[in-house]
Amino acid sequence: MSRRFWETDWFGPLMVVVVAVAVVSILNPSFLSPFNIQVLLLAIAVNAMIAFSQMIIIAIGQMNLSVGAIGGLSAIAFAGMMEVWGIPWPIAAILALALGVLAGVANGVLVALTGISAFVITLASLSVYKGVNLGITEAQPFYKIPDVVKGLGNDTFLHPLPWLIIPCVLAALLLWYLLNRLPLGRSILAVGGNEHAAELSGISVRRVVIVAHAISGLLAASAGIMLVGRLQLGQPTIGDDWLILSFAAPVIGGAILSGGHVSVAGTLLGVAIVAIFTQVLVLFNIDPFLVQVVLGVLILWAVGVNRFREVRALKHSAQVAS
């Protein structure tokens, strides 16, 4: 089923991005300075990983409250392994990613096998992972981060494109390919759309749920690791403020929370909208405390728009049928 391009999920958010960039750059030309673009891209790169991590769970019609806790745990594991055990950074990164996958699988197994709502399971695991994080670090950051990692977290490979944008683009392409071209991705969306129907058509719902949570853990862990490079230290508080953002971006991108419908491009644009709005508050010296309010209002606005589109689509199909 092909849709006209202005009816796609990403068209609305894209317009918002274009208009916002145009308006802001007229009001304040320094918005489009290479340095500002670099800062913007750095924020987008990390936040996109966080948003994707939640998006894949929204796709199966669940929610993952422990995204931030998994990211934080992986981040301090990454930094801790380098500082305490002297493990070279690529190996530490791989181990930290594996830890994220493990944490995600634990979520997925508990949800799939017990049938208890993902909300309760991930609320419990959020607390477990965060507790382990605090238990290991005793709320003290790891400071000894290799210069290579610090460089990768902040420098550009091609001015003004930062290194961190590479894993983000890679993740976006792979996720798009997964959800639109691979049988597994279609199964994920099918489970989100109608779990019972998916089960009856031969999809192993349990396996799909576990895999989706594993991917979510992997993405959350990569966001945590990227933040260690960006902040140049292994902060135990990494991940504490991810929850709102992780839902805001996919929802702005047109994701339906009951599952079965997500958009990678839309989510990426959602992240960009959040990043631009946050930047604007800084550029125009508006109180940074208002970021939280803006995020909340964006969520309300986006779910309202999605709801409107849903209702209109239903009406439209009803008209066509009659």
């Binding site: 709102i244 929370l257 405390f289 309010v293 909340g296 309300l300």
Partner: peptide, 23 residues
């Protein structure tokens, strides 16, 4: 009024209430 699940609404208002209060 919106007919949406309370999860997403209260997630948004949690951020809005707290943000306005801090501001």
């Amino acid at each position: 009024r919106s007919g949406l699940h309370s999860f997403i609404i209260t997630l948004a208002t949690m951020s809005i209430f707290f943000g306005v209060m801090i501001f």
